[in-house]
């Protein structure tokens, strides 16, 4: 049992008021940091997976033939040919207006539709191609061959080439967050171990007396385990409540983000369930750590 049942008259065998030591407060801080790190790790992992999924099979073909008419014709042929290939899920020509709009951000000339400079530029024809999930390397090789045949000189640009490092970096950050969660769990366990040992030291005379009267290690352990588990639970729940408020505020702020990584940084139902379970797991681990520490220490006494 996480918090063992001890009759009220037996609880009085140990002095000291609840929350009188630093343990609950230290555990509250550690739990707060653990939950924030876990939430960050989960949202980063989901974001990285979202980006990874989006870019895994996405390719842009850039046709840069100098002659505008030939360029358009090559683009038309290539898009039609690609759409007929079994390894292609979709082939979409990027409208010239979208390309002009993207360029206009750099030129600072509105939406670019009526910009004479942009209109005069020899803009490439762009085709976005989504490959069916599977062996991207082989599909890419076939697409390159197709592009070379239908539009010689066209550049085939897999999105993974330039967004992949970003996704990897985000995944690394997610692993760092997971590592922090593990480290803080270990730190919490260390706090509980130190608390248990300190409690045994503080109450040594009482424990010795209880032993001599005939108390078993289990009986004495239950007294301390209950006290430490309850103190730990107070601290962990306090930290969890503060973390919940902070995560709610951060979530509310992110709710306005509709594009980019922010839009992907949702915890999801499983993530929220995991975060909700973390404090309960932490309380159980604290109680178990206290129990093991106490029983080991008690065995060294006669």
């Amino acid at each position: 049992m996480i918090i063992p049942r001890v009759p009220p008259s037996h609880r009085a065998m140990l002095a000291q008021a609840r929350l009188s030591g630093p343990t609950p407060w230290v555990l509250a801080i550690l739990m707060l940091l653990t939950l924030l790190a876990a939430a960050a790790g989960l949202s980063l992992a989901r974001g990285a997976n979202g980006i990874g999924g989006a870019i895994a099979g996405r390719v842009t073909v850039q046709i840069v033939t100098a002659n505008p008419e030939l360029r358009s014709e090559q683009a038309f042929r290539l898009r039609r040919a690609a759409a007929g290939e079994p390894y292609v899920r979709a082939a979409t020509a990027v409208p010239r207006g979208d390309v002009a709009e993207s360029l206009a951000r750099w030129f600072g000339t509105g939406d670019g539709t009526n910009d004479p400079v942009i209109a005069a530029l020899p803009l490439p024809e762009l085709i976005d191609i989504d490959l069916v999930p599977g062996s991207n390397a082989a599909q890419l090789a076939r697409l390159r061959a197709l592009a070379a045949r239908e539009a010689p000189g066209a550049r085939v640009i897999p999105h993974a080439d330039w967004l992949g490092p970003v996704a990897r970096t985000i995944r690394t950050l997610a692993f760092v967050a997971a590592g922090l969660v593990v480290l803080m769990a270990l730190a919490s366990a260390a706090v509980v171990i130190m608390t248990a040992r300190a409690a045994l030291g503080t109450h040594y005379a009482t424990i010795e007396m209880l032993h001599l009267i005939g108390a078993t290690d289990q009986q004495i352990c239950r007294l301390f385990q209950r006290r430490i588990a309850i103190d730990s639970a107070y601290g962990i729940l306090l930290g969890a409540m503060i973390a919940a408020v902070l995560l709610a505020i951060i979530g509310w702020q992110f709710s306005g983000v509709t594009a980019g990584l922010g839009a992907e940084a949702d915890l999801g139902a499983a993530g929220w369930i995991f975060l909700a379970l973390l404090p309960l797991i932490a309380i159980a681990l604290a109680a178990l750590t206290a129990r093991v520490t106490l029983l080991r220490a008690l065995k060294t006494m006669l």
Binding site: P7, S9, H10, A12, M13, L210, I213, G214, Q219
Partner: peptide
């Protein structure tokens, strides 16, 4: 512990 509780200790244990 009070005198009563000290005396009761062995029985409680």
């Amino acid at each position: 512990l009070s005198a009563r509780d000290n005396i009761a200790l062995p029985l409680r244990i």
